[in-house]
Design a protein around this nucleic acid. Structure first.
Length: 419
RNA sequence: GGAUGGGUGGCCGAGCGGACGAAGGCGCAGCACUGGAAAUGCUGUGUACCGGGUUACCGGUACCGAGGGUUCGAAUCCCUCCCCAUCCGCCA
């Protein structure tokens, strides 16, 4: 959530930044400002009336104590009349406030100053490459062919159990999935200083508002019909919200959390994309990295976060590149994002395997995560999140990059002790 | 799912219609004492919003789990809901 004070003081600046994301955003700024004005007018009137009421009520109490019943009765009538007006205004305020909040919650974060300007993913900027794509002396198979032939990936049974975009994994695939999770968690906890966390995967709506999935992206989420609970689309949701509503001590920061969880996405906008294989599934595993840090350290921490995620692919010895997302491709909550894209031989291109973002105080403000600084002032923290990595996609990368002519594939050296 | 007991400030805990933003304690900060520290003493110590000065300030409003209601006035009385604990039931 953006700071309403910033919107009030620099509406043109905010509009300009939002325009870099999408031409359609700027009008919402005027909308929210109009509601803010209306809201403040009503608040002022209510508070004046209440101040008067409180003053008179106090007087009534004193009059009673002094035994001046008649005077007290007179004052009562005056206060009663004010009460009617207050009730009416409060109803009005409730309505305006709700519209104000809904609107404010639907405004995305502002891109950081150094984010490249562009309209969509074609204008993302490559930052660096690691490793050389292997030269094959045969036409590399896509992972779904490798997996089906070896009896490791069963797409038909996935559909039988749960429908399209669900898959069953057998034997080495299932085992490799588990090995990868352990490998990633070990790396981040032992080498990078993260605290391992296990979290629920069902969460309340306000938690999803905290990280920015709600209210705008309800159609991307799975929701229970019996209870007001949603399946998480990423552990970013639970890890970031661990400290929702809390005021942390400055010396507790930074906090580094990592968790393995399954993730659930309806992929509402992705009909027809990547339908084959396990690249885009409704349920997938991910090891997530979340950092809660002091504002002045967040960009330094973002660079470190990306490197920590990259380390996974380096140890697995799989080529990748890092791209910086342009303004038009940034996610809703992000001020700045690096994607890590892994080399997929069968597609002869790099595909996203991790997304690392600094949301600055956008999520902190929504989830009310603050810390008390040395002067005793409460300030919003900055929150960062990144995949470290998407496990299913890492499995794809291994199957394809380590494949052999006979249709089998090798296991990366670092994973052997996990198998 | 059933029964019982609870939800008050950073924490513990009192208050049960008017002077209560809320006793007391702990914690924290400052000062005094000390060679330094401990102990002790004194002082201070919530948040959000609205308005004015627009730096360290002042005024107002709200907040005692949430939402309604009664009342001139609610932490306090009434209703609804949520959450927590314990026991029973069910269950991996």
């Amino acid at each position: 959530m953006l700071d309403i004070k910033l919107i009030r003081e620099k509406p043109d600046f905010v509009k300009e930044k939002l325009r870099l994301r999408d031409e359609n955003f700027p009008p919402i700024v005027d909308e929210v400002l109009a509601l803010d004005n209306e809201r403040r007018g009503i608040i002022r009137e209510i508070e004046d009336l209440k101040a008067e009421r409180n003053r008179l009520s106090k007087e009534i109490g004193i009059l009673y104590r002094e035994g001046k019943r008649e005077e007290a009765e007179k004052l009562k009538d005056i206060v009663s009349a004010k009460k009617e007006r207050i009730d009416c205004l409060e109803r009005e305020l409730r309505d305006v406030e709700k519209r104000f909040n809904d609107t404010l919650l639907k405004i995305p974060n502002l891109p950081a100053d150094d984010v490249p300007i562009g309209k969509d993913e074609t204008e993302n900027v490559e930052v660096r490459r690691w490793g050389k794509p292997r030269e094959f002396d045969f036409e590399p198979f896509p992972h779904w062919e490798i997996g089906e032939k070896l009896g490791l990936l069963d797409f038909e049974r996935g559909v039988k159990l749960s429908g399209s975009r669900f898959t069953v994994m057998f034997k080495e695939a299932a085992k490799l999935e588990r090995a990868l999770i352990n490998f990633m968690l070990d790396l981040h906890t032992k080498e990078h200083g993260y605290t391992e966390v296990w979290t629920p995967v069902l969460v309340k709506p306000e938690i999803l508002i905290g990280t920015g999935q709600l209210p705008k992206f309800e159609e991307d989420l799975y929701k229970l019909c019996e209870e007001e609970l949603y399946l998480i689309p990423t552990a970013e949701v639970t890890l970031t919200n661990l400290h929702a509503g809390e005021i942390l001590k400055e010396e507790e920061l930074p906090k580094y959390y990592t968790a393995y969880t399954p993730c659930f996405r309806r992929e509402a906008g992705a009909h027809g994309r990547d339908v084959r294989g396990i690249l885009r599934q409704h349920q997938f595993d991910k090891v997530e990295l979340v950092k809660i840090v002091k504002p002045e350290e967040s960009y330094k921490e973002l660079e470190k976060l990306v490197q920590e995620a990259e380390k996974v692919l380096q140890l697995l010895e799989i080529p990748y590149r890092v791209v910086e997302l342009c303004t038009g491709d940034l996610g809703f909550s992000a001020a700045k994002t690096y994607d890590i894209e892994v080399w997929i031989p069968s597609q002869n291109r790099y595909r996203e395997i991790s997304s690392c973002s600094n949301t600055e105080d956008f999520q902190a403000r929504r989830a009310r995560i603050r810390f008390k600084d040395r002067e005793g002032k409460n300030r919003f923290v900055h929150t960062l999140n990144g995949s470290g990595l998407a496990v299913g996609r890492t499995l794809i990368a291994i199957m394809e990059n380590y494949q052999k002519k006979d249709g089998t594939f090798d296991i990366p050296e670092v994973l052997k002790k996990y198998m």
